[in-house]
Design a protein around this nucleic acid. Sequence first.
DNA 1: AAGTTTATACGAACGGTTTCGTAAAAACAA
DNA 2: TTGTTTTTACGAAACCGTTCGTATAAACTT
Lengths: 128, 128
Amino acid sequence: MSDKILPKPTDSELEILQVLWENGPSSVRFVNDELSKRRDIGYTTTLKLMQIMHEKSLVVRNTDARSHIYEAAIERDATQRNLLGNFVDNVFSGSAMNLVMQALGNHKASKEELDQIKALIEKIEKNG
Amino acid sequence: MSDKILPKPTDSELEILQVLWENGPSSVRFVNDELSKRRDIGYTTTLKLMQIMHEKSLVVRNTDARSHIYEAAIERDATQRNLLGNFVDNVFSGSAMNLVMQALGNHKASKEELDQIKALIEKIEKNG
DNA sequence: AAGTTTATACGAACGGTTTCGTAAAAACAA
DNA sequence: TTGTTTTTACGAAACCGTTCGTATAAACTT
């Protein structure tokens, strides 16, 4: 009822969410250190981004201690599902199958991965 | 050798590219009519977008006639592959398999589509 | 020829993201 | 206590994408 529609995270926000999803609740310092491994970014830039994410309710934070602890407020799976839907529409004209074929065809998958997919397909076929 | 790295098309530019890929070389008028079927957009907005795309070399154009004819300058497959790679990195931390599983699990695929994927997997397994 | 329609070109505004400088407060060290 | 480090907060600049108004020219209509 009182659920608000959360905005789609931007690319930078997604970078931060990945860190939070993988490491759990974290300080700005920690997130910034993680991001810094991948690219140049100033501490206050990361801080500002996370403050904006807080305003947007993409993260929640605990301000008890001096260094605030931030936590992702949206689920990884749900977020990926949302963004995937958008992406399929924009880039593959809505054809998820085309995307899957591209992803499969382009990516050198291991035997285990292919087996996983085959298992999933069988499961879908049974329940279909 | 003298190949330039083309910029990643934006969402709006992608809309236009879809029209050009599906209909071949087209006038601004035609593209705008197509876009207008899906959303509100002014003629000069479409024109401006296509002019910017021309500057970026995402399209080429023939200005012989009064109404200029625009044509996609980048291939659909290559573009989709590029954007997919980006997307997998940003949203799925580089795991294409995770993306495929999500796409498959979430999309109600027809028997034909599943067969297509199975055939592709077999082909990959043979050549692997 | 005069007026209407249709096209391109250009510039500017608007909104949003990203970046960072600077200030203020809190914690720590000497 | 005084100075250094660490943190949050705030504001502003720079940048980009999108949108559209207006000017101008070309082509068509009567």
